Amino acid sequence: MKKHYKNGLVKTLFAVLFVFGLGATFYIFSKESDLNFDLSKDITDKKQNTVILSEIELAQKDILDSLNTLKLAYDVALLEKTSLSQQLEIEKKNVENLMEIIKVSKNPSSQQIGLYRIQLSDLKNSLNSNVLEVKKLKSQNKNLLTEIESQNVVMYQQKAENDTLVSKQKKLESTLKDASKLAMNNFKVVALREKKSGKELETDKAKNAQKLRISFTINGNSIAKTGKRVFYIQVLDQKNKVLGEDKLIEFGNDKALVYSFIVAVDFQGKPANVYGVLNSEEGNFPKGTYFVNFFDKQEIFGSASITLD
């Protein structure tokens, strides 16, 4: 009886241990399965996060590359030096600012990347609009340059014609001026002695020479200015001293003349003989050679000389 009881107790205890063992085994496998599931899920999440992060980095790089392309496009547009240059500089600065913002941005979110893409799109549209305007201005400038070149050709031709006319005018004026000048010749100087009767005779003797008669002829000129003409006579002795009135006249152009006397004539375009007389202050002229210069204002137009023995 006791033996039967012991066998039953053992069987019961064994059954309890068996059930507990199965439960423990199930629990352990269950925990292991949960742990494996959690680890698998964590790895999957990490892989998904890595993929997302990689896509963001690629998007960030792609946006930076596009912005750099925009910057280069603005550099090219600025080379045209149009009236939009200042606006283009501002747009280029906007591109550079966005590039700096993206470069310093660490692990940007998808929302930030989306915002960058919108800004990139706006900058592209602005560039396209500016490029079209630059092309339009460039075309206008080209047409304007063509028009200016055409006008320059016309102006050059007109200037050449004007220069020719001016040259002809100056040549004509010079010709008229030269033609209107009076031509003088027959420059003479003779010594005279006066007889008691008043008659004057030529002499070459110094002791007899009481006066010097100086004369010249004006040729006829129909286009020369008519009216009173004044000429200045300068007589120099052997010591280069100016005889006669010995007066100084200035002509207002830093030129002056010391003359012996003045002769005047009423010129009317026809030939005219002009003369003047220089009297000796001492009754006669000393021996030697005397030089006579004829002036029309400050310009000398003739000369003569006489030697008295």
Rank of each mutant, 00 (worst) to 15 (best):
L236P: 06
I300T: 14
E250P: 01
T217N: 11
G244V: 12
Q298E: 13
K199D: 11
V242N: 13
V292S: 01
Y275T: 00
E200W: 02
N253H: 09
K287C: 09
L278W: 04
V230A: 13
L192Q: 04
K241C: 02
P271C: 14
D266W: 12
I249Y: 08
D296K: 05
Y290D: 03
V235T: 08
E194S: 01
G198H: 04
D266M: 14
G283T: 04
S280K: 01
G198N: 01
Q234V: 11
N253Q: 05
F261C: 02
F285S: 00
L212R: 03
G244Y: 06
Y275G: 06
A256L: 05
F251D: 03
G269D: 12
N293A: 11
L248I: 14
N284L: 04
S260Q: 02
K196E: 11
D266I: 12
I249Q: 09
A256S: 12
V292D: 00
E245F: 12
L243V: 09
A209K: 01
G302Y: 05
I300L: 11
G227Y: 11
L248P: 05
I233M: 12
E282H: 05
R193E: 02
I233H: 10
K241N: 15
R193H: 07
K297F: 11
V292W: 00
I214M: 05
A264I: 12
G227L: 08
V263I: 12
K287G: 14
I300N: 11
P286M: 13
A206M: 05
R229H: 14
N240D: 13
S197K: 04
Y232Q: 00
K207R: 07
Q238Y: 10
D204P: 05
F295H: 11
G252K: 04
S303C: 12
G288C: 13
G227A: 07
K247C: 08
F294Y: 10
K255R: 13
G198Q: 06
Q238C: 11
Q298C: 08
N279T: 07
E200M: 01
I262D: 03
E200K: 03
G252A: 03
G244P: 09
F285E: 02
K255Y: 10
V292I: 14
A304M: 04
I300P: 08
S260I: 02
Q210F: 00
K247L: 14
T217A: 00
R193M: 01
D296S: 13
F301C: 04
A264Y: 12
D204T: 03
P271N: 07
